[in-house]
């Protein structure tokens, strides 16, 4: 079957078998391997993507379900220059990465949080990331990175308000 949807800001159309997951479609049919295959039962969050702005495990979404909707994967998270955005830069600066396998999912979960909560506390950040497992970092530097991003985005938005 053919499905059409918005992928990382671009109109996309792809022909796929109807019984595959969004994860398989992204990785095997669209060659977007930044989304990682983890447990395939929605427990680990390695395959997290944004569907209409909401965080989902792409292993639990059937590909045809995204027809006409908007999907954002790690490949769609970029700064204006095509490099890392502020959150990704904070992951680098705060050492929030070790093996890196959970990192794309963590970044999408963090973006989902930051789009909904402007000033999350550390425990709210932990809660928001609790669907994304990381076996390497102990989460602390990830929480640091998200906290730093929230602070700087808040300063920016307050600055914009003041200027406006």
């Amino acid at each position: 079957m053919n499905i059409a949807f918005k992928l990382n800001g671009k109109k996309t159309s792809v022909t796929i078998p109807e019984d595959i997951t969004l994860l398989t479609m992204l990785r095997e049919h669209l060659n977007l391997t930044g989304t990682k295959q983890g447990c395939e039962i929605g427990e680990c969050g390695a395959c997290s993507v944004l569907l209409d702005g909401k965080l989902v495990n792409s292993c639990l979404v059937l590909a045809p379900q995204v027809e006409g909707r908007e999907v954002v994967t790690i490949e769609g998270i970029r700064g204006l220059d095509g490099g890392p955005n502020d959150l990704q830069q904070n992951f680098i600066d705060h050492g929030a990465i070790q093996c890196g396998y959970c990192t794309p999912g963590m970044i999408l979960a963090s973006e989902a949080l930051l789009s909904a909560h402007l000033k999350p506390s550390r425990s709210e950040i932990r809660e928001a990331l609790s669907g994304n497992l990381c076996r390497c970092t102990g989460y602390q530097q990830i929480v640091d990175a998200v906290e730093a991003t929230a602070k700087s985005r808040n300063l920016q938005s307050e600055g914009q308000k003041n200027n406006g």
Partner: peptide
């Protein structure tokens, strides 16, 4: 190796 990992 941080950059390639955050970019996916």
């Amino acid at each position: 190796d941080a950059l390639e990992k955050v970019l996916g």
